[in-house]
Every structure is written in structure tokens, then in C-alpha cells.
Design a protein around this nucleic acid. Structure first.
Length: 512
RNA sequence: GGUCGGUUCGUCUAGGGGUUAGGACGUAUCCCUUUCACGGAUAAAACACGGGUUCGAUUCCCGUACCGACUACCA
């Protein structure tokens, strides 16, 4: 009875993996690790028309980037393969046939046109939601209405057909959801869903039940959008004779638009300029690229932490969790019921937190790469130093170079506003004196030394240092604000500093 | 329309028959600081509504409203 937990993430390879899907994968992963179970991935590619090249690889890479790779998957098969439904195609028909034999399913030969006609007829008769169900099936072309001989003949002729489930007329279907409790649905509201399509492939409904059973899945953790079809799934387990090993269900709250209402979509992301996919995705058909968290500069640990908290919380007041800590703290009971709006600000905050935990060397390496992309060069040591003074002031790694360009590129122009307000004779005097001090200085040019020297210059000229600091910064960086100036001086070095001050003195003095 | 689900600060949420309804993001102010940021502090900010049950309801029950999902030979 104490069977090993086995959970699965079952995406459809129809494009980039949506961030909501990533969260579903994460919760599955967390639950598996928390319970000492297995996390597997199954590709649900029963709709061949919607197959998108590259989508599978994208899913694999995205999970790997976040560090939540499945233990069993098409790429690392376990004992329950294949892990692609298209490759499991031969396995499904026998179960559909079994259902027909037991009287829980039937063949249907209706063409698309006939189905459309049926819907139109019902709509005209003021039926609000036309369904293929216990009433309408009596008027359609299927093995319930056709004679046995005719059904055999049609089958023998190779006429296209589907297999539909025969939903009982009136019966209460109950299911227990780990998040929502008991959900009761009346079978009269269900329709006779197609189980096997005319192309010989199963639909999601049949395939997921058969596969979950065969793969010994113990818990189905998926999005709330599946809740309405869950009763159908329960019926399928029952009719197939698998009810006693039916997995437990947990339907996750949906990820909603940041403003207004509705499910989070790609459009929202584009409109507001934030990513909604784990990584960049180039649509092979349209050639358009959708932005990903990875390329936008989000760290995987930040994305993980952010996603985990979208619909779940540990029950205490901690906010920062590593993957291992999430595993430790996770429980399905603490998943909320209501939909969650997607707030990118929170993601940015998480990113800042994790960015600051990076070492100067790590961030320095990143900075160095950015600098080299711009055709410039820098030593590792110097890059690390710049990273050090910058990392508390940025959200993304790439912001470091964006906001520290002045460290490598001497200013040629100066912030006009600051110049007009702060550049004056006092600053010119102090700076002129500072250059002299610099010339005679031979020890190591540390931030402390830079400061001592500057204080000396101020003292010599008789001006308050505080009054001219802004002007000094302006002279050296061209800007009105930035990281600790003395650290900047030290990294710049004496010679570069003197050069910049000289240029500023020449350029700025003229205009003021 | 029908079925199902949901509803605590702007957002993510804790809590739960009697609380000053707690935290985080964001916002504002102050402190720190030669600037900016970081950090620290403070503030504004919520139980959708109506009925019950109860001494007492935000919490339990029932309605209503609102929001969402689903309603394909898609998943």
C-alpha cells in the first residue's frame, strides 16, 4: 500500500513552455523529491497537426536550466517507456476496444459536417450547449444506432470512425481533489468525449489515463483548467477497472494576468514587456522571438523562488528559498485555491536578492563578457572590483555594464544639470590642488588613500569637501550619481584619474 | 447560457469564532550616506455583499454579486 510516489509533467510540444507549465513542473518536482518519489516527463504529442519542431528540446532545456530535470523522460527512459505518446500509439486501441466490449464506449461515424449540422440543429432549437451525449447520440451515426452488420461493414470498408465514451445518463461522479476537496459532478452535464480519433491516435483523455496507469502515476498535479474533465477521467479509470489504483488529483490555481482578468497570456507579456517563457523562443513558423526569463537576466534560483510562491507559501514568514529548501518546506496542503496574478515586480526583487549573493568573481566574469561584446577589454580582477561596487544597485547582471560604462570610457560630455548647479570656483580649486597631490603620491592608491588625498586638497584650498563632492564626481564620471566615488577613484587609478580631471578642468571651466 | 472552481491590503499571502487581522513586493516619509543605490525605521493600505447560526463571524452555513476555467476528432 505504501507505494512509491510517482508524478509526471505532461506538456504538449506545441511551442514554448508557458511559465504556468513551468510552475506545474516545479510543483511536481518538489512533491516528488519531498516524498522520495520520482518525477517523470511525458510528451503529450497525440495531436500531430500541432507538433512544433524544437518544442521538445525547449522543454528539456528549460527544466535543465532551472535544475528540475525529470528522472524519467524521452531522453532518460525508465521502465515505463516510451515517454512520447506518439510512440505509444499501438498501446491505446486495446483499451478503447475493451471499453466498447464492456458497453462503455462506441464507434461513431459522423462526419465533421454531420456534427456541425447537429450543433446547428440544437442551437436552432435553443439548446445552449450542443453536446454529443446520451440524448443526441440516438440521432447520430454510431454503433448504438446502426445495426451490428452495418457497423461491421463500415469498419470493414475502412470508413473513418472515432470511438466515444458512453457517458451514463444519470449518475453522480465524485472525485477528491487534494487542493479543493470533494468535487461532485452530474454525468448528465458530461458529453460523450472522443477517446480515439479517426487518425488512430487517442485523445488526451484516453491517453493520459492509460499512460498514468501504465506508468504507475500516484498523483496527478496539473492546472485547474483540467478540473472540468476530471470527472470524465474518473469514469475512465472506473470503466477500465483501475479505480483502486487511480492517482490522487491536485488541481493547481491558474496564473492570471497582472492587471484585469483572465489567464496569463503571451500577449500580456508582450504588452508590458516582461517575459512569460523560461527562455527565449523563436517561433519556427512566424520567426518571431518571445522573450525568456533567462535571456532577460533572471537567475534560475530567482525564477524558481518566484514561481514556487505563486500559489504556495511555507506558512511562515520566510521569503528566500533555495531549491533544496523549497523541497524541504513543500506540501500540497499549503497550495492555495484561488488564481494568482502575475507580478513581475516580485520576480525582479527575487532576482536582486539572488544577484547579490553572487560573488564578485562570478559577476565580474559576466561583466567582462559584456565589455568584450562591446569590443573593449578588461582584466578579471578589475571586472570583479567593478562588479563589487555595482551589484547592490542593479536588478540584472547586464545592468552592471550598462551602469558602469564610465569606468572604462572617460566622459567627453558632462551632465548639464549637475554642471550648472555644482560646478564652481571652489570645485576648480580643489580639483586643481588634487591633481598636484596625485602627482606626488607614490603609495598604493586605495580608496582610503584617494579620500585622504582629496581631504588634504580641500584643506589646502580651504573649502568644505562636502560642498564640492558632486562636482568632483561630475568631473571624473560625467554623471551626477553613482557608486562610492573613492572606490571608483581607486579602480580607475591615479593616472587615469588625473587625465580625467585635467580634461574636466579644461572643458567645464570654459562653460561656467 | 450550462457545469465546475474561486473571493483577506494595489499584488503575493498568513491567520482563523473574541487578534492592534501578521509578513513580503510595490508606494510614501525619515535615518544612514559627499550622490545614487543598499541597509534600517515608520506610514498609508484588506477580510466582496446580504441573510442566518452564535453572547460574539472576517472565520461556520445559505444566498447574491463579481472573477475565472471548461464547454473540439487541442492538450
Amino acid at each position: 500500500m505504501n507505494q512509491t510516489v510517482r508524478v509526471r509533467f505532461a506538456p504538449s510540444p506545441t511551442g514554448a513552455l508557458h511559465i504556468g507549465g513551468v510552475r506545474t513542473a516545479l510543483y511536481n518536482y518538489l512533491f516528488a523529491r519531498k516524498t522520495g518519489g520520482k518525477f517523470l516527463l511525458r510528451i503529450e504529442d497525440t495531436d500531430q497537426a500541432r507538433f512544433v519542431p524544437g518544442a521538445e528540446e525547449y522543454i528539456q532545456e528549460a527544466l535543465a536550466w532551472l535544475g528540475i530535470s525529470p528522472e524519467e523522460s524521452p531522453w532518460h527512459p525508465g521502465d515505463c517507456g516510451p515517454y512520447r505518446q506518439s510512440e505509444r500509439k499501438p498501446m491505446y486501441m486495446q483499451y478503447a476496444l475493451d471499453l466498447i466490449e464492456k458497453g462503455h464506449a462506441y464507434y461513431a461515424f459522423d462526419t465533421a459536417e454531420e456534427l456541425e449540422a447537429m450543433r446547428e440543429r440544437l442551437t436552432a432549437a435553443r439548446v445552449v450547449s450542443p453536446q454529443y451525449n446520451s440524448i443526441t447520440r440516438t440521432q447520430m451515426k454510431n454503433s448504438l444506432t446502426l445495426s451490428e452488420d452495418e457497423v461491421k461493414a463500415r469498419l470493414a470498408f475502412g470508413e473513418p470512425y472515432v470511438i466515444r465514451i458512453k457517458i451514463p445518463r444519470k449518475e453522480e461522479v465524485r472525485l477528491h481533489d487534494m487542493i479543493r476537496g470533494w468535487v461532485v459532478v452530474h454525468s448528465s452535464t458530461l458529453d460523450d468525449k472522443v477517446l480515439m480519433k479517426s487518425d488512430g491516435m487517442p485523445t488526451y483523455h484516453l491517453a493520459n489515463i492509460v499512460d498514468d496507469h501504465l506508468m504507475k502515476i500516484t498523483h496527478v498535479i496539473r492546472g485547474e483548467e483540467w478540473l472540468p474533465s476530471a470527472p470524465l477521467h474518473v469514469l475512465l479509470y472506473r470503466y477500465l477497472g483501475w479505480e483502486d489504483t487511480m492517482p490522487q488529483f491536485a488541481h493547481l490555481p491558474l496564473l492570471l494576468k497582472p492587471d484585469g482578468n483572465g489567464k496569463l497570456s503571451k500577449r500580456d507579456a508582450e504588452k508590458q514587456g516582461f517575459p512569460i517563457f523560461p527562455m527565449d523562443w523563436k517561433d519556427p513558423v512566424t520567426g518571431e522571438t518571445a522573450m525568456g526569463f533567462r535571456e532577460a537576466g533572471y537567475l534560475p534560483e530567482a525564477v524558481l523562488n518566484f514561481l514556487a510562491f505563486l500559489g504556495w507559501n511555507p506558512g511562515d514568514e520566510r521569503e528566500l528559498f533555495t531549491l533544496d529548501e523549497l523541497v524541504e518546506a513543500f506540501s500540497i496542503e499549503r497550495i492555495g485555491k484561488s488564481g494568482t496574478k502575475f507580478d513581475i515586480n516580485k520576480a525582479k526583487w527575487y532576482n536582486e536578492q539572488y544577484l547579490r549573493e553572487k560573488t564578485d568573481a562570478e559577476l565580474g566574469a559576466f561583466l567582462k563578457a559584456d565589455i568584450e561584446k562591446d569590443g573593449l577589454g578588461i582584466s578579471e580582477d578589475k571586472a570583479a572590483k567593478i562588479a563589487h561596487i555595482m551589484k547592490d544597485r542593479v536588478t540584472f547582471p547586464q545592468d552592471i555594464w550598462r551602469d558602469s560604462k564610465f569606468m572604462l570610457i572617460a566622459p567627453t560630455t558632462f551632465d548639464q544639470e549637475v554642471a550648472s548647479k555644482k560646478w564652481n570656483q571652489e570645485a576648480v580649486s580643489v580639483l586643481t590642488q588634487y591633481m598636484e597631490e596625485l602627482e606626488g603620491f607614490t603609495e598604493e592608491f586605495s580608496p582610503e588613500a584617494a579620500k585622504a588625498l582629496l581631504e588634504k586638497a580641500a584643506e589646502t584650498t580651504g573649502f568644505k569637501l562636502g560642498k564640492v563632492m558632486q562636482a568632483v564626481r561630475l568631473a571624473v564620471t560625467g554623471l551626477g550619481g553613482g557608486p562610492d566615488l573613492m572606490a571608483v577613484f581607486s579602480i580607475l587609478g591615479k593616472e587615469e584619474l588625473a587625465k580625467r580631471i585635467k580634461f574636466a578642468l579644461e572643458t567645464l571651466s570654459i562653460q561656467s
